[in-house]
Design a protein around this nucleic acid. Structure first.
Length: 357
DNA sequence: TCTGGGGTCCTAGGACCC
DNA sequence: TCTGGGGTCCTAGGACCC
């Protein structure tokens, strides 16, 4: 989806269409707080970028709801993740009608296996049809990339945003990737990118010429993935999502605190929050983790596993608090609780226990 | 540059088992 | 008392993604 959060706001508030729009996390209407989650393309053209502070953004584009007379003005809205999730759901089910094999990633991105289309002409029609249907029935603008691999399709979908349709035929893959910066490859973040630049590798073409042995030596299994992607040999298949591996809750503190009771209270609240999600599913957990971010940004994690899978909220809560004990004196800016090692409750559990007896 | 919330995968070391 | 080879599970941290 193109600037998904903004597009969602435009669905329920059409006056935002065509105007600069900024959706901010931690933003409170009327205050210059928080950071930019998503900016419309009109706002981006005026210099607003993701993750920029709202106050910086307001210095570029003032808030039209506050100052309607201003020449350079746009609309600011807080993130309403529940609403976006609803829209995401309808867009996913729409895509599921187009292909048996879909993989939905995050809130606004999906892969479709369209191998059954037999030629590129039909792929083009198919893709245009999807794009128009999403636009007409849900009101969402989107960009689509088509190729013979997930990796190249992803890059292609992003290369001409917004509202783009890019098809890369197999014989053109090398040429397409050749001069793109390595940052376009999924899996290359700030750390890997810096490391590759230090080796003099700046484009995907240059990466593809680097000996695989060297990439493997420096980056382990990831090095092999990089080599494959750079050569357009990404063999990952589109498959539906497996079961969820972990569930977590975290929250940034209004103020950095060192006080143990305050930290404990937050950990308890997050645990209960997680627990309430378990109550209505038949999910069991075996492992509990906490996360504590110490200023300026040092991440600590502690983990403990219990012998038997459970959905007992008290076990969750007391485990989390037990783990917190090690950080009695540590200042925290953010705290989180996570459960993992998930399994589904076995309906025959009781029977089995009886057998054990 | 500063740092929201929810995830996944990988690595490396340690404990433990046969 | 010293310690092979092969394996599993657990934990802490890091990198990355939307």
């Amino acid at each position: 989806m193109d600037c998904f959060f903004v597009s969602c706001e435009r669905i329920r508030e059409p006056k935002l269409i065509g105007n600069p729009v900024i959706v901010g996390m931690g933003y409170v209407p009327g205050l210059s707080r928080g950071a930019v989650a998503t900016a419309s393309y009109e706002a981006r053209a005026m210099g607003v970028k993701s993750a920029m502070t709202i106050s910086k953004s307001i210095s570029l584009i003032s808030d039209k709801d506050i100052d309607p007379s201003s020449e350079k003005s746009g609309y600011y809205r807080p993130v309403d993740i529940q609403f976006y999730k609803e829209i995401s759901g309808s867009f996913r089910s729409l895509l599921d009608e187009f292909s048996d094999t879909t993989r939905h990633i995050g809130i606004d991105e999906s892969y479709l296996d369209v191998t059954k289309e037999t030629n590129w002409e039909s792929v083009l029609n198919f893709s245009q049809n999807i794009k128009e249907t999403i636009e007409k029935t849900i009101g969402l603008p989107s960009s689509i990339g088509v190729s013979s691999s997930m990796c190249v399709s992803k890059i292609a979908s992003a290369i001409n945003k917004p509202s783009a349709l890019v098809i890369v035929k197999p014989q053109n893959t090398k040429k397409f990737l050749q001069n793109l910066p390595i940052e376009r490859l999924p899996g290359i973040g700030p750390v890997t990118s810096k490391s590759l630049h230090s080796m003099g590798i700046n484009t995907i073409g240059e990466l593809s010429k680097t000996p695989i042995s060297e990439l493997k030596y420096r980056y382990g299994s990831k090095g092999l993935d990089l080599a494959n992607m750079a050569n357009g040999n990404d063999r990952k298949k589109v498959f539906s999502m497996g079961p969820r591996k972990s569930i977590s809750r975290e929250s940034s503190l209004a103020k950095i605190t060192i006080n143990y009771d305050e930290k404990k209270e937050i950990i308890e609240k997050l645990s209960l929050d997680l627990g309430s999600r378990l109550a209505y599913s038949n999910t069991l957990f075996r492992t509990v983790s906490i996360k504590l971010i110490e200023p300026p940004y040092k991440i600590h994690t502690r983990t403990i596993s219990v012998p038997n899978a459970t959905n007992d909220v008290d076990v969750l809560k007391s485990s989390a608090i037990y783990l917190l004990n090690e950080f009695q004196e540590t200042p925290a800016r953010k705290l989180g609780v996570r459960i993992s090692n998930l399994s589904l409750q076995d309906v025959n559990q009781t029977k089995l226990e009886n057998w054990d007896v």
